[in-house]
Amino acid sequence: MSTITTPTTSKQGLQKQGRQKRPQTQRSRRRVEPIFYLFLVPSLILFTLAITVPGIMGIFFSFTNSIGIGDWDFIGLTNYIAIFSDPAILQSYLFTFGFSIVTVIAVNVIAFLLAVGLTARIRMKTALRTIFVIPMVVSGIIIAYVFNFLFSNSLPSLGAAAGIPWLESSLLANPDLAWIAIVLVTAWQAVPGALLIYIAGLVAVPGDVYEAAEIDGASKFQQLLKITLPLVAGYVVINIILGFKGFLNAYDIIVGLTNGGPGTSTRSIAMTVISGFNGGDYAYQMANATIFFVVAILISLVQLSLTRGRNAL
């Protein structure tokens, strides 16, 4: 156990040093060079123009009956009231959250197991790592169209040839199972990102803890459970947070695979919001986006309070 506590003590040492140094640097901290503010200006302008202003405009229009163009009137909270009784929107929230949770679990379990394998002493480690990372560099919409073809044509004809009846109809055409296809494809694309983070985490675990464990007679499985997992816990948290955030915004893969169908069974929140532009329902979907924004902030707050306690991050 002493090896684990060593980094903590060294960190405390660093903090002490910092505290001692503070009086010397205090003067420069009070007067900041104005040039540093200037460096912030370009990104501040871009952020304001591209994110803040449209965001505020969207919130403003959510209280109107605007369709995005032409004449409009204020209608107060009507859009918000309508949203809470709209089964289509409630369903899109249900689908998006369910999908995100399942995908986050699938991605992290697969990525972690792959990372354990790829950091072990195996042949062709580099080649294998490269192969596993390839899905990350292909664009989501292309992946979705390729898988769409596989699900709609290749798998059914395989099923017909092999005489497997349940494989003969496309997974994408089944309203109850289409989400599984979306989880599969999304996970296929998201695993490499999580995998890289896990590999980085596993490589950082010092080898001597395993040696010590081996001497004490721990099996490989015990080592994985009792040493590897706790030591990369921070990376697990970061992967879950990053993954969950990404999956809540799911859009391109769903559009390419099912386009929200069959029926409305796989419409994500992002898809309903964007339908406001295409369907002339701008203000209503801006209200939806505002609610989603608030939900996202709440989730971020929860995640922040969860991660603040972990020094690993």
């Binding site: 309203p175 069959p262 329902d281």
Partner: peptide, 15 residues
């Protein structure tokens, strides 16, 4: 109106 996803609904019925 296009904001009502009628195409999706008809697909759901057929399915």
């Amino acid at each position: 109106p296009r904001t009502i996803p009628i195409m999706n609904y008809t697909q759901a019925i057929v399915f």
